[in-house]
């Protein structure tokens, strides 16, 4: 599989992000292919989380944070759009499952509509909820307890609920920031399988610490080091034949 022949959904040009004076990511140029799973890897503090938080403009919410350069989502520079519109098109799943504690499972799934004050007709709301929960492989487990609080679910179920919540607004891209790092191995595996299935529906960009996980689920891998994009390519290629010595050192466990 080659990058050149795939349609591109995200393209950054000379993207830099700062916290106050600290430059967290430096001059990133990357093209993220559509309906594929792209993994972002690198040692902690390498800027991978900052990078995906730029893609839905959450980065700028941190006081003192700013971005330079451009990010194109299907040829529109999202830095010139309203962040709210960007976030409707680019969903996100976080490190720790964060269902809204005051809402039921059903309300959580539809939170993207409810919180914006968008009133859906009853049958349409039910359809979207079921569709999103099925996509998140959670429907069978919760279909009888839809109107109970989401906080009673297990960690893995909560994380899948958050995935369903992100999917329900039908985003074009789903960003995932180490979505399995707070989960047990069994729940992690479930989420990994889910990600592979989901790429038929949505483009996935996932930050992960876990090398085998990146190897199992991603089509492309980007390796970040000290805020720079060191290497980017098809996962199989990058894992077996890294071009940059820093990638190789990381893959062989020389630093972490």
């Amino acid at each position: 599989m080659s990058l050149e022949r795939l349609p591109i959904i995200f393209r950054t040009e000379d993207l830099c992000a700062y916290y106050e004076d600290f430059m967290a990511i430096k001059h990133i140029n990357i093209k993220i292919p559509q309906k594929q799973v792209t993994a972002l890897m690198g040692p902690s503090g390498c800027g991978k989380t900052t990078f995906i938080r730029c893609l839905n403009r959450l980065h700028e919410l941190t006081p003192g944070a700013r971005i330079t350069g451009s990010i194109y989502l299907r040829d529109q520079n999202i830095l010139q759009l309203d962040p709210i519109v960007v976030r409707r098109r680019v969903g996100m799943v976080f490190q720790r499952p964060n269902p809204f504690p005051t809402m039921t499972i059903y309300e959580n799934v539809l939170a993207g509509y409810k919180l914006l004050g968008i009133r859906l007709p009853r049958n349409e709301a039910d359809e979207i909820a079921e569709w999103a929960l099925r996509k998140a492989a959670l429907w069978e487990e919760v279909k009888d307890i839809l109107h109970r609080r989401g906080t009673f679910l297990s960690g893995g179920q909560q994380q899948r609920l958050c995935i369903a919540r992100a999917l329900a607004v039908k985003p074009e891209v789903l960003l995932m920031d180490e979505p399995t790092s707070a989960l047990d191995p069994k729940s992690s595996l479930q989420i990994e399988n889910l990600i592979v299935e989901l790429k038929e529906t949505v483009t996935i960009v996932i930050v992960t610490h876990n090398m085998p996980q990146a190897g199992r689920i991603s089509d492309f891998t980007a390796f970040f080091y000290l805020g720079e994009l060191v290497e980017f390519g098809p996962t199989a290629e990058l894992f077996t034949n890294p071009k940059d010595p820093r990638t190789e050192e990381y893959l062989t466990g020389k630093f972490s």
């Binding site: 996100m92 939170a111 914006l116």
Partner: peptide, 23 residues
């Protein structure tokens, strides 16, 4: 109220004022 709840709401494209009032 943990920040991850604010982020969850903002990441759904909810404006900050609605995030405050509804989450």
């Amino acid at each position: 109220v943990p920040d991850i709840l604010r982020e969850a709401s903002l990441a759904l494209g909810v404006p900050y004022w609605r995030t405050v009032m509804k989450v």
